[in-house]
Design a protein around this nucleic acid. Structure first.
Lengths: 335, 335
DNA sequence: TTATATTGGTTAAGCGCTTAATCAACTTCA
DNA sequence: TGAAGTTGATTAAGCGCTTAACCAATATAA
């Protein structure tokens, strides 16, 4: 591999000049620029990133950290990547992705890169507020933004769907479609999220003049199997729900299976409303209606927020809630 | 952030000693090691990766490059990551992930990191042999291994499922289950792959004493919609197939929808056999039988192969084919 | 006792860049 | 004509590590 010295020699200039040309700074004459360019091409030169990073004190890359749990991908990872990539393309930042396996202590794999400054900033996606990585980032004074979690404390920047509004909208919508007995099933992860969901849920019921049932939310782990079991149990009760708000695509899969088990037809006997913008939804049978805040918007906001942090702009709003919308498909019987 | 100088001062030794302690090399007394350790802890020191990389000439990280196309995730990305992670955990290599968006020229985003030596090696997953990135890696003399593609030329190292054997096994299996009119639908990507599939497909038919039909393989883009249309067209023919080998999970989704459109019951009227080990398969209705070579095995092999390349071990077999297996679920009517 | 290893470090060069400071050669202007 | 910019470079220090080479002190062997 050729170095900046080779290029300098080839072009008959000093390495400083080469550096200035490559970075478009300094005062260099057009002829010299051209000579350097040609030398670069001829030698097929590309600056070594480690050297650049060491000299500059930053790496010009940001990392997206997300769980590798497969069904989470469906929850819009690619849309987020797309959006972040779009924003970063305007800058000279690059995007690294750290997918964390679902193993105990897997978070530690982030320690070396973060504290060793492999990146300038981090976007944490679908990572719980209490996750040790949050503290890691804070202690390492690494700028970061969370996606898909709403913080309770004021000092953690995040972009999230307005899940309270989501729950409200979901219930509202189902109710208006004629489904009056509504349950939520899914993995809420944290108490804070559960509470926010219940808030929206009960709020919607109340404004419809209905009481807020106990056990409105059925918490299951992320796997479709668990959701299937839970849904089956609920759907066998006397006063079984006729509308289910399923909090992830894997929950939807479970609920669909449960409905099939019990010979319930969707949407005739049971409405299923998904959460998030899973690419799976249009392709299940029947296609799944869903409520969600745009992942693309969240990705964009998060990226921009992080970039602002780099300019240590303190005047920015650190907490962004994306308003939800409904996509109507066939699992909820459009009136 | 503290540097190695701070640690050296704190421990009362030279920076060389600190470096030796941290890397477990050199000859250092237990007492000195302890002192350095304490200084490291006290100052919360972590070596800056850029400095380390520059001094050592390598970064101790390898990159997994894969398309960000969402349905591809299902084809085992997380299993591959898991497997690679498992292998790398034994070493001191770290795994970076570069997800390439489905945009023209998106491959160029790999140019800077690769030529700038941000990683020591690359694993290319589900990337075509003719992809410009292959040439990029070769020109940059960056060690790499491909996953999920079989090379025709001898000089490109790869790990892939034995797709010829997959097709053969698929047909064989369907045939034995009583499905005699079999079609393949999916995105083959390259002519080489199509040919290999046909080879296995027709081989199996021939050994069953059947002729090899024209149009045995229906090539569609990766989207479920296209697969749905194609499947619907095929299933409306006079002599419609009663068994379909669907080459990806998104194809399976399309075929399932098509069957539903035409009121065909799976597996009674139509058997559907998926390809690859998608986590989706167990959760569709009915659960999807599939044939595939283990993604975990592929990931492991690829990682080990790459590590061997680092020791420029030339004596290694560069081409690995993983033998396929069948997972029987309910979409193919177990006899 | 003297030559020879061994132990436990230190020294300093080098990795390949960036960039502030500097400088020589021209212009411009009073 | 000389002082003051301006242009287009060069110089050299520094980023934070690694590591070969070296060295002093102590242990071992002849």
């Amino acid at each position: 591999m050729s170095t900046i010295y080779d290029v300098a020699r080839e072009a008959g200039v000093s390495i400083g000049t080469v550096s200035y040309v490559l970075n478009g700074r300094g005062r260099i004459s057009p002829e010299t620029i051209e000579r350097v360019r040609q030398a670069v091409d001829k030698l097929n030169y590309q600056p070594r990133q480690a050297a650049k990073a060491l000299a500059q004190g930053h790496t010009n890359s940001i990392a997206l950290v997300a769980p590798a749990k497969i069904y989470d991908y469906q929850m819009g990872l690619s849309k987020v990547i797309d959006a972040i990539g779009g924003v970063l393309a305007q800058t000279d930042y690059r995007l690294l992705i750290h997918l964390t396996l679902d193993r105990p202590d897997a978070w530690r794999e982030l320690e070396e890169p973060v504290r060793g400054r492999q990146m300038d900033g981090v976007i944490l996606m679908h990572v719980a507020m209490q996750d040790p990585r949050v503290e890691l980032l804070q202690q390492a004074e690494m700028p970061f933004v969370m996606i898909g979690r709403t913080a309770d404390t004021g000092d953690i920047p995040y972009v999230d769907a307005d899940i309270e509004a989501c729950a409200q909208l979901a219930v509202d919508y189902l109710y208006r479609q004629g489904y009056q007995r509504i349950s939520m099933i899914g993995e809420t992860g944290e108490a804070a999220i559960t509470n926010r969901l219940l808030q929206g849920f009960c709020g919607a019921l109340k404004s419809a003049g209905l009481p807020c049932p106990p056990n409105a939310i059925i918490n299951v782990s992320g796997s479709p199997e668990e959701a299937r079991k839970a849904a089956r149990a609920v759907l066998q009760q006397d006063d079984r729900p006729n509308g289910i708000f399923a909090l992830s695509d894997s929950t939807v899969l479970g609920v669909y299976s449960a409905a099939h088990d019990l010979n319930l037809s969707i949407p005739r006997d049971l409405a299923v409303l998904g959460y998030a913008d899973s690419p799976l939804y249009p392709h299940l049978i029947p296609p799944v209606s869903a409520v969600f805040g745009s992942m693309a918007e969240m990705g964009e906001e998060a990226a921009e927020l992080l970039l602002l942090k780099f300019d240590n702009d303190t005047s920015i709003k650190d907490q962004v809630l994306i308003p939800p919308a409904i996509v109507e498909r066939e699992s909820t019987c459009p009136a």
